[in-house]
Amino acid sequence: MSARQHLPANSPTATPAGISPAEPAPAPDERGAAKVVAEGVPTAVLPDPSRDDGRRPIAWIHTVAPGRGTTPTVRSWCSCGRDLFAAGERRALALIKDHDRHRAQCPLLAEGKEAA
């Protein structure tokens, strides 16, 4: 490794002769137009990803069914307060059917269907 000499932190950086630091660099085609966008910056206006459309999940189900010889599990949640869990194939299938039935009868989901 070679030791480099560093300028003190408070000293201004040197500007090469004939170049003003306030002027834009000439474009590669020599017309003198400055680049509008840096490389890699998208020029198209994209939709705001954080924009909220007002939709919220109300009832959802999480099913884990790993490989053969393991126990499947199911969990059913709803904003109305429902929070059920089942383990084992027979109980998991019963909870999935019950979750579908709940989605058809839950008052929170019925409000959303009427509004739509």
Score class of each variant (00 low, 15 high):
17 A>P: 08
83 D>L: 06
109 L>T: 00
93 L>T: 06
9 A>I: 12
56 R>E: 07
2 S>L: 14
86 A>P: 00
15 T>M: 11
60 W>C: 01
19 I>M: 08
112 G>N: 10
48 D>H: 02
5 Q>F: 10
90 R>Q: 13
17 A>V: 09
11 S>F: 14
19 I>K: 07
11 S>A: 15
53 D>T: 03
51 R>D: 05
15 T>Y: 11
89 E>F: 08
21 P>H: 08
102 H>S: 00
43 T>P: 07
104 A>H: 11
20 S>G: 07
83 D>H: 06
52 D>K: 15
94 A>H: 02
50 S>R: 13
98 D>C: 03
63 T>C: 12
95 L>S: 00
112 G>V: 14
113 K>W: 07
65 A>Q: 14
113 K>F: 04
26 P>M: 01
66 P>S: 06
16 P>L: 09
27 A>P: 12
50 S>K: 12
82 R>G: 02
73 T>W: 06
113 K>R: 15
83 D>I: 09
71 T>L: 12
77 W>E: 09
115 A>G: 05
24 P>L: 06
56 R>G: 02
49 P>K: 01
36 V>R: 15
88 G>L: 00
32 G>K: 04
98 D>Y: 01
52 D>H: 14
40 G>E: 03
96 I>A: 02
4 R>P: 15
17 A>S: 12
53 D>Y: 13
11 S>L: 12
33 A>F: 11
67 G>P: 03
28 P>R: 03
68 R>M: 06
83 D>W: 03
100 D>R: 14
35 K>S: 14
40 G>Q: 06
36 V>S: 15
96 I>D: 05
83 D>M: 04
7 L>N: 10
96 I>M: 09
